[in-house]
Design a binder for these strands. Structure first.
Length: 467
RNA sequence: GCCCCGUUCGUCUAGCGGCCUAGGACACAUGCUUUUCAGGCAUGGAAUCGCCGGUUCGAAUCCGGCACGGGGUACCA
């Protein structure tokens, strides 16, 4: 059995790695690893108009952030270099040429305006808006001459009869009528290939054994199958997984849902949690568990078990899962994650002390600041009106000022006694104190927080609040 | 319009002809724990398995039609 080789082929046309690509990457990566194969990243930058500067770099670094490592790619090379399609132009032109020679493709001189007109007409006539094949008939002697002076594209000559059938690991047999397939452009007038030519040529040349991608590619697969046949190449194993959807069930899009890897990173989602969540899309653990590592996923995943239905992306469940991951992270690690998340802006030792207090209270790393900012900055405002409680605060300050053993328990006992003595309900009493010290109504446990802040700071804050 | 792929609680899913008066997780609600918020624990509501026919002693599970959803229909990927 040939060694398994899988790939993802993102195009650098967005600001970053799309979460849908992360999903496809994960499935490919996991499948590769469980088969001890090789995982390849290929950059499909054939649409020059849509290329976004810096996109490729961010895609690669996001993959790295997720810990999805490739064995071959544009940044690290490999036996089938280059891994950027824009650097493989000659290959595509040569292969298009082969197709022409074999009679499976033809030159087309129609202009975009011609095509537009043709399409409009066909739609009006109620026919499928396919290319009508008028350039198929151009004589060899004529086109040999015309390609020297005119702009042209090369089109696939789709057989007029019959069906193109292929087997999909996830969906079984899928079949298309050839007469409904378009004479797809293979080589554009700018000399760049379209996706369809490039993907087939590269997958073959790079010895890709399994094509695992999203459902949106099913309709173009018959064209690819035709190409493999025309070239006389063996067809790789094909699997079309689900496309991720917006909550309204349409294809996941940046309009309706955060899609860029960087968004999740900036919000403080953990890459392991995202991957775990993604693993739950279209697949479930045989033991019914929701939380498992990528190692476990590799062990239990089966490609043929992937469900074909497009699942809706549920940020709420991702947040829950992320919270679970945070709670399972060792304190020392969580501390450095938070520290780095905030660009090392806050004193590491202070974060260290606060971590045990907030570990159960945050779902994403960015929840940390709103909860803990009072540790680093004196409150400027108070979320409740303290003007009615000035005397109480003065009394508290005095009592606390005499406390020698500045520890959470002692502080707590002292305050508890005072509340009891004054017959103030705990909830009310501590809320006043809480806001005086932190400015906030929602905080980590108060006594512990005061211990961390230190006697001096706490006293000065309470005094300030009582003025 | 045409082609293709789908259809189990709001969401992610279990289910491969009897174990299903359909199970779990998220979300939601309630209660307990309590010094806020979380967390934890407990409880609850929530899918007549899209609909209609068929096969079968028996169907969420197999078959057909319809409806609905999604994807594709570019010199985008």
């Amino acid at each position: 059995m040939e060694k398994v080789r899988c790939r993802i082929a993102p195009s650098p046309t967005g600001q970053d790695l799309h979460i849908g690509n992360v999903y496809t990457a994960l499935i490919n990566y996991v499948f590769t690893l469980q088969n001890k194969g090789r995982f390849i990243v290929r950059i499909e930058d054939t649409d020059r108009a849509r290329i976004v500067a810096g996109s490729e770099k961010r895609i690669l670094s996001s993959l790295e952030w997720f810990g999805i490592k490739h064995d071959e790619g544009p940044d690290i090379g490999g036996p089938f270099s280059p891994y950027r399609q824009s650097e493989r132009l000659k290959l595509y032109a040569d292969h298009a040429e082969i197709l022409i020679r074999k009679g499976y493709a033809y030159y087309c001189f129609c202009t975009p305006a011609d095509l537009e007109k043709m399409r409009a007409l066909r739609i009006k006539e109620g026919k499928p808006p396919l290319y009508d094949g008028r350039c198929r008939k151009i004589d060899a002697r004529v086109w040999r001459d015309r390609i020297k002076k005119e702009k042209y594209v090369i089109r696939l000559k789709v057989p007029e009869k019959g069906r193109t059938v292929f087997n999909d690991v996830i969906r079984g047999e899928i079949s298309f009528e050839n007469r409904l397939l378009d004479d797809q452009v293979l080589l554009k007038s700018d000399g760049f290939p379209t996706y369809h030519l490039a993907v087939v040529v590269d997958d073959h040349l790079m010895k890709i054994t399994h094509i695992i991608r999203a459902e949106e590619w099913i309709s173009s697969t018959p064209k690819h199958v035709l190409l493999y046949g025309f070239f006389g190449w063996p067809l790789p194993i094909i699997a079309h997984g689900p496309v991720l959807r917006n909550p309204d069930k349409s294809k996941l899009s940046k309009r309706k849902n955060p899609v860029w890897a960087s968004w999740y990173r900036e919000k403080g989602f953990l890459p392991e949690a995202i991957l775990n969540y993604l693993a739950l899309m279209g697949w479930s653990h045989p033991d019914g568990i929701d939380i498992f590592s990528i190692l476990e996923f590799i062990k239990k995943f089966r490609l043929e078990d992937l469900k074909p239905v497009g699942p809706a992306f549920d940020l709420k469940k991702l947040e829950w899962l992320n919270g679970e991951y945070i709670r399972r992270t060792p304190n020392s690690k969580l501390k450095s994650q938070i520290w780095e998340f905030y660009d090392k802006l806050y004193p590491a030792d202070l974060i260290d002390k606060t971590v045990p207090l907030i570990k159960e209270r945050i779902k994403i790393l960015s929840d940390y600041r709103p909860l803990c900012r009072f540790f680093f900055k004196e409150p400027k405002e108070y979320e409740i009106d303290l003007s009615l409680h000035k005397n109480l605060l003065k009394e508290i300050a005095q009592l606390l000022g005499n406390l020698n053993n500045w520890q959470a328990d002692n502080i707590g006992d002292l305050m508890q006694n005072l509340a009891r003595k004054l017959k103030i309900k705990n909830a009310d009493f501590f809320m006043i104190l809480r806001v005086a010290v932190t400015g906030q109504k929602i905080t980590p446990p108060l006594n512990e927080s005061m211990e961390i802040l230190g006697k001096k700071v706490v006293l000065s804050r309470i005094k300030k609040a009582s003025l």
